[in-house]
Design a protein around this nucleic acid. Structure first.
Length: 314
DNA sequence: GCGACAG
DNA sequence: ATCTTGTCGC
């Protein structure tokens, strides 16, 4: 009953199971935080937008966050927080951190898997390099384009009290917005970079916009407000950050986090249900970017500091 | 019962 | 999210 090798298998199987009471709790938390959500431009955003038109290149900064996963492992991952200057789009700060995801991915509850980790990285930035705290952050995922109007970008925005923009690569079908033939037709009608169409919910509210982010990518990305920014400003800002389909802040975060995993784990993913509990990387002790935290002993990094089912009474 | 399901 | 080679284009 207690064979050591099944631990990994077990964690995969239980991945999809989350008690209803936990979801209820999460929903209530979303509703509570949602009251603090602001859908208008912050002062910084207003200035940021005017900076584009005029040539006053003040030192505006845009952040991007993303998490990359170890292949075949639903727990161990690398989170990246990147800051770029604007409109030059040069990386001025990067932080990669090995993390341990405690909650499974449940559509509609992505924030409970990722948000608090990103919050910690933001706190680190604020504490150690305050001069690089960005005026806005782009998030992989949705803002108000969400079953309860409070996606990861909203959640993180409220937690950080900072403008956040939701940038999703796939449409989250919500509130009557469907990826049907009509939707596909509208996509075909996006002829060039910068073209958009609205994503209108049941109550005629515009929840987001599909944006063809560059000429070379026919598939749009889906933008929605996270916090302290209007949809139009969000779309504008995202578009101005697009060299490729995915805007640079998010794209750089993706690149850096994957690179970090590659450097520290290489091609040897040992998690294939081996009985060997000890992995040995007796090679490549390369010290890469000083921005990233070197990882020598993975085990010691993964101390349990967070429990999903803490308030488990009844 | 069936489909949908951000990352 | 991840699995994956070549290929077309600037």
């Amino acid at each position: 009953m207690d064979d050591p090798g099944s631990a990994v298998e077990r964690q995969e199987e239980q991945q999809t199971q989350v008690p209803e009471e936990i979801k209820d709790k999460w929903e209530r938390e979303q509703m509570t935080l949602k009251k603090q959500m602001i859908l208008t431009d912050s002062g910084d955003i207003t200035k940021l937008m005017s900076c584009c038109n005029e040539k006053t290149s003040d030192n505006f900064l845009i952040g991007g966050v993303d998490i990359s996963f170890v292949k075949g492992d639903n727990v161990n991952a690398c989170a990246a927080l990147i800051v770029l200057n604007f409109p030059q789009l040069e990386v001025v700060y990067e932080d990669c951190q090995m993390i341990k995801l405690t909650a499974p991915y449940i559509p509609g509850f992505l924030a409970f898997r990722e948000a608090y980790l990103l919050e910690e990285m933001y706190s680190k930035l604020k504490k150690t390099q305050p001069q690089y705290v960005p005026q806005a952050i782009m998030v992989d995922g949705n803002g108000i384009l969400h079953p309860r109007g409070f996606g990861l970008a909203c959640h993180l925005g409220v937690l950080l009290d900072t403008p956040c923009i939701g940038v999703a690569k796939n449409l989250f079908q919500v509130d009557g917005i469907e990826n049907d033939d009509d939707h596909q037709l509208k996509i075909k009608q996006l002829s060039k970079g910068g073209d958009t169409f609205q994503l209108v919910g049941t109550s005629c509210k515009v929840l987001g916009k599909a944006l063809r982010s560059c000429d070379s990518a026919p598939n749009p990305i889906y933008i929605s407000t996270g916090h302290k920014i209007t949809l139009d400003s969000a779309v504008e800002l995202v578009y101005r950050c697009c060299k490729h389909r995915v805007p640079e802040p998010t794209r750089q975060a993706d690149i850096k986090s994957r690179e970090y995993l590659r450097v520290h784990f290489g091609s040897e993913h040992e998690e294939q249900k081996n009985k060997g509990k000890k992995k040995q990387r007796t090679k490549t002790t390369k010290h890469s970017k000083t921005d990233c935290n070197p990882v020598d002993n993975v085990e010691e990094l993964f101390q349990d500091t967070y429990c999903l089912f803490e308030g488990n009474d009844t």
